[in-house]
Design a protein around this nucleic acid. Structure first.
Lengths: 195, 195, 195, 195
DNA sequence: TATGAATGAGTTTTCATTCAT
DNA sequence: GATGAATGAAAACTCATTCAT
């Protein structure tokens, strides 16, 4: 892929993120994405197979980067406690810096259309896997107490997700920085992490 | 509202719940709901203003009953510990018995369309409020330790939601009964509930 | 199929015949057929699966009737000579009375699109078969002399087709009645029919 | 026209013949022709005004050569009998050697689009004219008996055309050489040519 | 000349909604 | 009230043609 080609590809993906966040996938016409990206409608189809492909690409590209960033940050820490805190912080920071992506994630993560779900579920599963790994390791090292890794992950991710959900739907959201420690404190209790 | 009128109203709502769960709101045609309800397409419009109104009614009706049931159950308990466990159990049991509603909730709870969001958010806010009340009361009575009621609710609801989300998307879900205690144990830790 | 339903079905088919004759299949928009038939665009799709289905139905319906009429007429005659003359006359008369059908036949009979070809070829093959049967019978009864039935049919049909082709493309065509005898005289010579 | 320019012109025309034969004029995209010709899409428009112009040029060029070849061959013969046989043979041989052209001719000869028809009709009319001339001369010289030259031409051309039509649509066509004599024998009867 | 990325007009088809019966 | 045939607005997508390089 040449430089200008890649640039336009990402311009369209950026525009789609904005547009999907604003209108939702189904309510958003391809022409709106095109206008936002500053290209003609037909140009979209030089870069994406169809509308669905835009959404799918958006997820694998953006979510991929999100997971990548979290993975990259987590490996710098040793203890389970640090790792969990790191995930919380990176999760919040990344989505705070990419509000439209956060919205799209919130909205479209739950599409029922089987084809879309399937395409989306990939990166998310990776994330779930990472969390579960950290928890399993924590149990093994006896740094945390947890009866069921899957339920542990559900609580951990569900909490972050609920926080983001509120933040996203709030008109004037308070910065997520202030919440990190509150969330972490709950996790410390839930996972019986010693002081 | 006369008896037979009310019957048909609920028949359509039941059909819509099934159909939305199966296809998703946007992908589901009104004619599919009509067929499932055993009425003509036009009949739908004698009971609902438009397609959106079906979704909105579905939420206020079904979610309303859901909240009602939880409220009703919770008041039978005294301690915060018991109340939280009661919510967990009722939440899981109700959605387990109404799988289609659970799916619709998961999927459509996060519509971006502002009109739909607004309509949906009512019953949900009631639920959030209930949880927060229980938590606030628990703090006051010193039965739990919690720095921020809102974050506490986000964790509590987010966890239940994530469990349901996994359960809903699993082809062969394990019964939710086995998970209740695991979830509650995590909450006990998070909220520092004494044994 | 109820009465009014069948009426509209044929109204659309009539309109399509006119429109395809006027513009050609590809150049003719579905909306033009709808306007000509006096129905809304969407109504077309209550009666036909898609644009292609209109063309296919047109052929099986119209060509079917055409063949039917020829078959019906031919059985009334005994000698090969009479039968061939009957085919010539019926062929000319039918298409003269259905000029648009004649045009559509001329134009679309030769579509390259495999799906369309296949659908169209059915009724035509029936016609070819009929002609070949008459010729084979004539040979057997020694009423005509002909080395190869297929080539005989090609000449017979090709001649009629070429006449119609000229007639169709002429702005002010001379009536086909005057040509029947000329054509038949050529056939008589070609097939060595005795006086 | 310089040499290399002319080469590319014909390369495009060759490619168009193949592509139109394969897909049909309307179903064939200009980009397919370009790819087949080994040039860029835009290059096509340095040699042809538009898509239609390719088809038109194809006919005047290819059909022109076709007529030329027939004309050239026919003048070598004296008697009407010989001339007609020569036309049959050349017609069959030329199209057998240019199957794609034969297909395109069969398919597109009958376009309804008036502009296309007009452009195509030129070379065809020349051909018709040639046949009619041979026939008129035959009548004059009393080598054939024929009441109407136009109908005679219609039969003559229609027969050749029908043979080609069958040959073109057959997956495994028998060689046309075997048919020449069969066809000629029919013509001899039709035109009352003496032995 | 040659390229091929970009354009945007144009077309088929769907489907929520209406309304005559 | 109930029906379901008819409507027509709306939207995804295609592709002939252009033009900056």
């Amino acid at each position: 892929m040449s430089k200008p080609r890649e640039e336009k590809y990402h311009a369209i993906l950026d525009a789609a993120t904005e547009a999907f966040a604003l209108y939702g996938y189904f309510t958003c016409q391809v022409s709106k994405i095109a206008k936002l990206a500053g290209v003609a409608d037909g140009t979209i189809y030089l870069y994406f197979k169809n509308k669905e492909d835009i959404l799918v690409s958006l997820f694998s590209d953006r979510m991929g980067k999100f997971i990548q960033e979290i993975l990259h940050s987590v490996v710098q820490y040793q203890t389970t406690q640090e790792k969990l805190l790191c995930i919380i912080r990176t999760h919040f920071r990344y989505l705070q810096e990419n509000r439209s992506l956060a919205i799209v994630t919130q909205i479209e993560l739950r599409q029922s259309d089987p084809k879309i779900r399937e395409a989306i579920s990939g990166p998310l599963r990776d994330y779930f896997h990472l969390i579960e790994q950290v928890l399993a390791e924590g149990i093994e090292r006896e740094e945390i107490v947890l009866a069921d890794v899957k339920v542990g992950r559900q609580m951990f991710f569900g909490t972050l997700d609920a926080v983001i959900s509120d933040w996203v739907s709030s008109k004037k959201p308070r910065p997520l920085e202030g919440i990190e420690d509150l969330v972490f404190d709950l996790m410390r209790g839930a996972f019986r992490i010693k002081e």
